[in-house]
């Protein structure tokens, strides 16, 4: 009996180690490949090489990767700050001041979750064509154009409303007694109290924005405006691909999300799962 349990235990560990190896393998391949020349990467060499500096140089010299990192940073940080501010404002409004009219509005917002982005790409592109005619700085081929459709999303409004349920309403009364305006209460009391919710929402939004591919691909046209995924995709699909520089570009541009994940793991999981509660 005891023996049987022990073999079961060992089998579990062996299985989990095997699974972990499979799941980690692409990362391992990425890490060793950044120091290998193109030819070794296509041959599937699994040991590190001595080509790291050359790969880095080729990447810097032949691709607009550094500019794209800057663009992606602007887009992701901008989108994160604006969208979590606007969406949390709404979540707060819906939960703290509920009314029948607002429930109708809330349901309309939720309905937009059923619209897949793939169905939106054509009409959105046309809409931005119109916007370009009125305000070129917000339209096609601008970083504002990348952010604008995501200023508020049903998911974030929903997420903030759900989490506002845990916000102690006494604090609002306290704020009112102190003579704070509704916006004052929101900025000075709500935001500081809900820090973890903001962290969670911020992480998820940042990651989505940093990794977003389809919409930037449609709205951006000149390479100097490209975000990271566009540059990497272009690097990987040319006729002469330098695999070493593609790998190092992927490696460098995955670092921000990896850091966020490892440092803020707790909030990260909360941001994913929080909306379910």
């Amino acid at each position: 009996m005891k023996n049987e349990k022990r073999t079961k235990r060992i089998a579990t560990y062996v299985f989990l180690i095997l699974v972990s190896l499979i799941f980690f393998f692409p990362f391992y391949f990425l890490i060793v490949s950044i120091s290998n020349p193109s030819i070794d990467i296509t041959r599937g060499k699994l040991l590190p090489g001595s080509h790291l500096i050359e790969n880095f140089k080729t990447m810097i010299e032949t691709t607009p990767i550094s500019l794209s990192i800057w663009n992606s940073a602007l887009v992701s940080v901008g989108q994160t700050i604006i969208s979590i501010f606007v969406s949390s404002l709404a979540g707060y409004g819906f939960e703290v001041h509920p009314s029948r009219g607002k429930e109708v509005v809330y349901n309309i917002i939720l309905l937009s979750m059923m619209i897949p982005f793939a169905a939106l790409m054509v009409p959105l592109f046309r809409l931005f064509g119109t916007i370009s005619g009125i305000a070129p700085a917000l339209g096609i081929d601008t970083l504002f154009g990348v952010v604008l459709p995501y200023v508020s999303t049903a998911f974030l409004v929903f997420f903030f409303r759900q989490n506002t349920k845990m916000f102690p309403k006494e604090l609002i009364e306290a704020g009112r007694i102190d003579g704070l305006s509704e916006l004052g209460i929101f900025v000075k009391i709500f935001i500081p109290t809900m820090k973890t919710t903001y962290a969670a929402a911020g992480i998820v939004t940042f990651m989505n924005s940093w990794n977003n591919y389809l919409w930037p691909l449609i709205v951006l046209q000149s390479p100097e405006n490209y975000t990271v995924p566009l540059v990497i995709s272009a690097m990987g699909s040319g006729y002469t691909i330098d695999y070493g520089s593609v790998m190092i570009a992927i490696f460098i541009t995955t670092i921000p999300t990896a850091i966020i994940f490892f440092v803020l793991q707790k909030y990260f999981v909360q941001g994913m799962v929080g909306s379910l509660k």
Binding site: P26, F29, L30, M207, W210, N211, Y213, V228, P229, I232, S233, G236, V246, M247, I250, T253, T254, T257, A258, I260, F261
Partner: peptide
């Protein structure tokens, strides 16, 4: 945590 483009290329 990987971007869809990045992992597709890998």
């Amino acid at each position: 945590i990987t971007s869809l483009v990045a992992y597709s290329l890998i």
